[in-house]
Write a protein that binds this DNA or RNA. Sequence first.
DNA 1: CAAGAGTTCTTTGTAGACAATGATAATTAT
DNA 2: ATAATTATCATTGTCTACAAAGAACTCTTG
Lengths: 236, 236
Amino acid sequence: MAETRARKTASIEDLRRRVLTQALAPGAYLDEVQLAEHYAMSRPPLREVLRQLAGEGYLELHEGRGVQVAPMTHKTLRNFFTSAPMIYAAISRLAAEHASTAQIMQLKDAQVLFRKAIRDCETAARALANERFHAIIGEMADNEYLTPSLRRLLIDHTRISMTFYNPRSTVLADQRMQAVAQHDGFIALIEAGDADGAAALAVDHWELSRTEIERFVAPVGLQETLGQDLKSRGAS
Amino acid sequence: MAETRARKTASIEDLRRRVLTQALAPGAYLDEVQLAEHYAMSRPPLREVLRQLAGEGYLELHEGRGVQVAPMTHKTLRNFFTSAPMIYAAISRLAAEHASTAQIMQLKDAQVLFRKAIRDCETAARALANERFHAIIGEMADNEYLTPSLRRLLIDHTRISMTFYNPRSTVLADQRMQAVAQHDGFIALIEAGDADGAAALAVDHWELSRTEIERFVAPVGLQETLGQDLKSRGAS
DNA sequence: CAAGAGTTCTTTGTAGACAATGATAATTAT
DNA sequence: ATAATTATCATTGTCTACAAAGAACTCTTG
């Protein structure tokens, strides 16, 4: 078994992806033996992987009762809204101050993929590309004290966006174009080293995302009276 | 082996303590077999423990090259100064908003231990009690997105304070009393639910700590001319 | 004498088997 | 019939032994 090491990192990345795209639903319990089989490894190293992912916030360990995909409740959503703008703004500011040219290249590459995913209406790819874009900004910030919080926020931001993202909705099409434009803005501001600008844009970008989420969480009520056909509205 | 579970959690707490008090020096490499022996467990569960602690920021894993106590460089110190006030203020604010009475009791208990450690000039106990005090405030905030950053900050804050803390210095005695008073202030403000007050006090508390650290990192230069006795100044 | 390659040895990583705990279902007693 | 208790089962947690990768040392060669 020469490539077990590769398998281990692969399993970590795959599990991250599955959690982010909700292929593994929040709150779902995982089976160690099943996962170990799936990734063609034995349980001890898999357990290490699970611990690590728990540390990163993807999973939750319950002593003697198994591993759970990090659940999302109304409380987590509230906390998310409270913390996100502050962290995003701080990270963006630091990124503009510290970004290397190599990292800016990475960011541009990520933006290409983001654009592509939106054009092709690939929900999961879009969510992952967006996560990657912001994760790179996090790397640029290069601050070991703030990145843990950013990581944690991105996990749930990505998962939340997966729950309600509807590539067919024309209302959201405009917002998607705005998001793409804002990403371009990030690249320009970071390249220019404009810390204040990047921080301000982070707040705008967050506001855009927040409206999207709010529109889904608290949608406008149905207008029909009892007895009418409700099918065509699709409020779910 | 009925109590292996207890041993596992005990090993986690002990390792945390040893890192925080610098009984394990920053950057030091650990030996798995030695640690496993020390905690009377086999290597696989110990490796899980190490992964978890790495996730929490106490350790760093190096693929195939062993485990290292999280190092502290000039860069980490700079990042620390950048991030700490924001996170501390935010956490304190949320703590004042959400603290339960049970948690306030815990905080008061922690403060008793903090006072005691300072009175008895026990450096490690003081550092750990201070860490615990602020960790409880973190629990009060009850925000899974911000606590990871707070945790990370407290690790290095505790370690930094251990490096230069000198219970004999009379200059620092006054600062210690101020710190105790500020902790009392936290308790009062949190109990009163004064979020703005708690956030403001967090900034003050941070400033106090920062001056202490700065005085150590950039001390005033020695005044003696060459050839004079330098022993009595203790500039290390 | 210095530099590089080969070999040995220490240390990390993994596998498979075993033990123990928590969950589930069945049986018994009220 | 329902509730409690016990027994069985599935699943988590751990241990010992083995394999492989990295580090250090030695031996050889320029």
